[in-house]
């Protein structure tokens, strides 16, 4: 049963990716912005335009271009970037770890902050503290991540410059690691100087991404916890004499966390999407920053590669959340 569901999801994922590939391929060729027109200086003639179109393989029909590209993708060749002249797959994979590390760090911060807000709000419900937390939550939610980024830059980059404003790592510390998961690998290699430097660079963009998500998590988890606190089994726990902290943490939280988990899964995909703007703001060398450059330069193969990878990530995250939900929810597990 479980295996069949898994296989169905994988098949759905493949169809989704194919759909995304078709849409992206078509849309970026339909929307205004011809990469060759952008590249040619005004003195160029029609023959020069034709020559460069042929050079970049843009002289063929769109379906023909698509099938050539798709044929390459199936064999692991995502084409060559127009701007960097590097293989797209290599470029995208080299930047993916930076974005994943940033997203995961933002998620961890969001879960911790949101969890703390929810637990404190539940513990101190119907008090002024809960009211203050609700106000703070509302503020965190209503300000978009890039504005949080600007606020953080002003506070911790300029007024009290304790964190680094731009980049992923200090130029004099760029490691020669086996992978691009610098944060992870620096721990394994006991390079704590590098780890600290990475964290110092990542903290502000991660925080900017995390604050709105933390507010959402806090709000939903608190609501869910408050509802759970009225259930019979929680009341029973109280009558047994357990402390309020024990009731919240050990009894109510496990059930209350399920809807939040689904939300986190959905929001994580949005969070990865949010890295596009935040990475740009902090000049963080991830996939999002590269995506903006690719769009500005109309680097069609690179845009296709990045979007396809983002789509793959989104579907994988959703798949993982579904599976985790099934594992944690006994009703689904035994269905």
């Amino acid at each position: 049963m479980f295996l069949r569901r898994l296989l169905t999801r994988i098949a759905t994922t493949l169809v989704t990716l194919l759909g995304v590939a078709v849409i992206v391929f078509a849309v970026i060729r339909i929307v205004p912005g011809d990469p060759v027109a952008m590249m040619l200086p005004p003195g160029a003639t029609e023959a020069d335009i034709a020559r460069l179109n042929a050079f970049y393989g843009l002289d063929k029909s769109i379906p023909e271009q698509f099938f050539i590209w798709l044929g390459g993708v199936v064999q692991g060749d995502f084409g060559t970037s127009i701007t960097t002249r590097q293989p797209v797959l290599g470029l995208v994979l080299s930047r993916l770890p930076a974005t994943l590390e940033l997203s995961v760090m933002a998620l961890v911060i969001a879960v911790v902050l949101g969890g703390l807000v929810a637990l404190t709000g539940t513990r101190l419900r119907y008090t002024r503290t809960e009211g203050a937390l609700d106000v703070a939550n509302g503020m965190a939610l209503s300000v978009p991540d890039f504005l949080w980024g600007l606020v953080l830059i002003l506070l911790f980059g300029v007024l009290w410059p304790v964190f680094t404003i731009s980049g992923r790592v200090s130029p004099n510390l760029v490691p020669e690691f086996a992978t691009s998961f610098f944060l992870f690998e620096s721990v394994l290699r006991l390079r704590f100087d590098l780890w600290l430097d990475l964290v110092q660079h990542m903290l502000m963009p991660a925080l900017a991404l995390a604050i709105p998500l933390a507010a959402i998590i806090g709000q939903l988890l608190k609501q869910s916890l408050k509802e759970t606190m009225h259930l019979d089994y929680v009341t029973l726990a109280r009558t047994k004499g357990y402390s309020e902290n024990h009731v919240i943490l050990r009894e109510a939280l496990r059930n209350a966390v399920l809807p939040t988990l689904t939300l986190i899964g959905v929001q994580f995909t949005f969070l990865i999407g949010g890295t596009v703007i935040i990475e740009r703001l902090f000049s963080y060398e991830g996939l999002g920053n590269m995506a903006i450059d690719a769009v500005i330069n109309r680097d069609l193969p690179l845009i296709q590669g990045i979007v396809l990878l983002f789509a793959l990530l989104f579907t994988l995250v959703n798949l993982a959340v579904d599976l985790l939900y099934a594992v944690l929810n006994p009703r689904l597990r035994h269905a």
Binding site: I153, S166, S283
Partner: peptide, 20 residues
Amino acid sequence: VTIRFVTDAASRVAEVESGR
């Protein structure tokens, strides 16, 4: 000379304002 690619204007201002 280190040339940092800081594409956002607000971040460039902050870079110089903070002395980095």
